[in-house]
Simulated scan of single mutants.
Amino acid sequence: MTAEVHQHSDRAIIERSRRDPEEFAALYDRHAPAIHRYLARRLGRDLADDLMAETFLHAFRQRDRYDPERLNALPWLYGIATNLIHRHRRREVRFWRAVARTGADPAAHSADEGVPDRVAAEGVRPRLADALSRLDRGQRDVLLLTASGDLSPAEIGAALGIATGTVHSRLSRARAKMRAALGGIDPLDLREERHDG
């Protein structure tokens, strides 16, 4: 890796922010949109604004403990955001049930933003939301982090503090449950078709 690439890595930004706290803003600018989309997908836009700020505040306060082996801070930030989501588990389930009932997704903003828009066609949204609300927390975390398209299984494991094998097994179980709920349709396959087409 060249010195220039390292200089612009998340790790380098965090290292510089230890001496100059204002440097941390570059990390926010780089990753805030992805973290906000993820939070909005899980809890709706209203709470996403607050939790995104809380995610980055927590990351800023914990920057001295950031693992210097990681060049990319996105898995770390997703892990913080997921832990904050867990405080609002009931609200997340209510959110998905409301989408299932109404078919309207108040968190969706555009066709390329948000998990249901990325993983399923419009007509599948109510069944998708209902199925998501029925997944256990660990399976929902892994499935939605996978559907975000930003993280590898190893990065998801790092974000959630679980082994990569656990990520694979949770994802396999979640996909099986989702296929059953969606009449054999794999929502991750829909995502791939939609992005290819």
Rank of each mutant, 00 (worst) to 15 (best):
H6Q: 05
Q7Y: 15
Q7L: 10
H8C: 09
D10V: 02
I13Y: 03
I14T: 05
I14L: 14
E15K: 09
R16W: 07
S17G: 09
R19W: 13
E23Q: 14
E23H: 08
F24W: 12
Y28L: 13
D29T: 15
R30C: 01
H31T: 06
I35P: 00
H36M: 12
R37L: 07
R37S: 14
R37K: 08
L43V: 11
R45W: 03
R45Y: 04
D50A: 10
M52R: 03
E54Y: 01
F56S: 01
L57A: 06
A59M: 05
P68M: 02
R70G: 00
N72Y: 05
L74D: 02
P75A: 04
W76S: 01
L77F: 03
N83E: 10
I85S: 03
R87G: 15
H88C: 04
R89A: 14
R91T: 11
R91S: 10
E92L: 06
V93K: 00
V93R: 00
V93I: 15
V93M: 03
D105V: 07
P106N: 10
A107S: 15
H109A: 14
H109D: 14
S110M: 11
S110H: 14
G114W: 00
G114T: 04
G114R: 01
P116F: 07
R118V: 05
V119C: 15
V119K: 06
A121Q: 10
G123R: 13
R125L: 14
R125G: 08
P126R: 11
P126E: 09
D130I: 04
L135G: 02
L135H: 01
G138H: 08
G138D: 06
Q139D: 15
Q139K: 12
D141N: 14
D141S: 15
L144W: 05
A147G: 10
S148T: 00
G149Y: 09
S152W: 09
A154D: 05
A154I: 04
A154Q: 09
I156N: 00
I156F: 00
A158V: 03
L160H: 06
A163M: 06
A163K: 12
T164M: 07
G165V: 09
T166G: 14
V167T: 06
H168E: 12
R170E: 06
A176K: 13
M178A: 04
R179A: 12
A180E: 15
A180Q: 15
A181C: 09
A181P: 05
A181T: 08
L182G: 05
G183I: 08
G183L: 10
G184A: 07
D189M: 11
L190T: 13
R191E: 08
E192H: 13
H195K: 11
G197M: 08
